[in-house]
Design a protein around this nucleic acid. Structure first.
Lengths: 209, 209
DNA sequence: CCTACCGATCGGTAGG
DNA sequence: CCTACCGATCGGTAGG
């Protein structure tokens, strides 16, 4: 049913739920609803209807609505961290690694699959502070992937601004694409990633020769 | 009571409410609450308590809660458009004009006063589509200020990426600062604006000479 | 996983 | 601007 070896290995490590299980299907629908209409506007009845059960039945799988949000965020980070590490490792140099990270985050924000990065970014304040602390541990690992590459570019002299500031600006810029980017339009996500590199003055072609 | 001539003139044109009026005070508190906890999480009882009245009394000033959100957005745009036009006109060249826009938007997003740009950005989808259309007319004027400057920089050869894309990336990047920027920290908003210019390769000092 | 239902809270109204 | 209150809807529970 599923032929992605990376995903398969994450499922076996219990880092993400099997997408064919009841829990996996619920989390996928929850991610989509939270992304499209926001956590607050999504009711437990919406969530139940999306997987074809009654609202009361939800609470056999999760104790609270917030626990569903937390699970969506945790699995999203686990999946994205694994995918982005693979993308970074595959790229030959720092320029390539950054572009791979930008593209992967664009895909995660705008993707149709389980990579609901937009939920993680925009619904953060809907999490209780206790849950935020738990998720933050995983987020730090994810952010370290970015910082390693951005600091590498700074050492090469290719990046002049503060890497921490750049990463935070990119977080906002890339997640905001969900409000305006349309996949049906003329520009693909690869083209968008090119534009981001161009904006940062990190395009290979765009450099003075 | 108020000695800002630009604000004074906007009040006389009925483009923004007098901050000392009941309406003005309510809108200022509403902007703060919407920005800090979001529109959905802010109840009409929160709004009423913030100005010291009963919740039912709110509906003498506004017919619905959504109308309060719309009014906050309309007045925010009116105020910001006027302030940013003045900032752009005062700057001597395109570099200076862009930096003035970046700084003004940073101040509006993070400011303590009525410039609640963050509400405009993050609560957009809470507006009905009818209200969105009304606000969009004002937003187009605001965005044209940015596009004039970004297109000017492109013609000078200082900007290589697509101005439309750059503006959208900046919208996300600058509004996102509200989640992490702390005014008490070591970096002021001016320093943050410098970093943005550096990131875009548009810092005067940073250019190859 | 369903039926039946709860206490709380929501935005908003009526009459003064 | 207040008092008193409404119908609807919310997240969540009990018992099967």
């Amino acid at each position: 049913m599923n032929h992605n070896p990376l995903l398969q290995s994450l499922i076996e490590q219990n880092k993400v739920s099997d997408p064919d299980s009841a829990r996996g299907r619920l989390l996928r629908e929850a991610a989509r609803l939270f992304r499209d209409k926001g956590y607050e506007r999504t009711t437990v009845r919406d969530l139940a209807a999306a997987v074809g059960i009654q609202s009361g039945s939800l609470f056999h799988h999760f104790r609270t609505k917030e626990e569903i949000l937390k699970a969506v965020m945790v699995e999203t980070i686990q999946l994205n961290t694994a995918m982005m590490r693979a993308a970074v490792d595959a790229a030959p140099d720092m320029h390539g690694k950054l572009k791979a990270l930008v593209l992967a985050e664009l895909e995660s924000v705008n993707g149709q699959t389980g990579e609901a990065m937009a939920v993680l970014v925009y619904e953060w304040r809907s999490l209780s502070s206790a849950a935020q602390e738990e998720v933050l541990v995983l987020r730090d690992i994810y952010e370290q992937l970015w910082m390693d590459v951005l600091c590498g570019l700074q050492e090469e002299g290719a990046l002049q601004a503060d890497p921490f500031i750049v990463r935070r600006m990119l977080t906002g810029a890339l997640s905001w694409t969900i409000t305006w980017y349309r996949p049906q339009g003329p520009m693909g996500l690869g083209g968008l990633a090119d534009q981001v590199m161009l904006m940062l003055g990190l395009s290979r072609n765009g450099k003075s020769s």
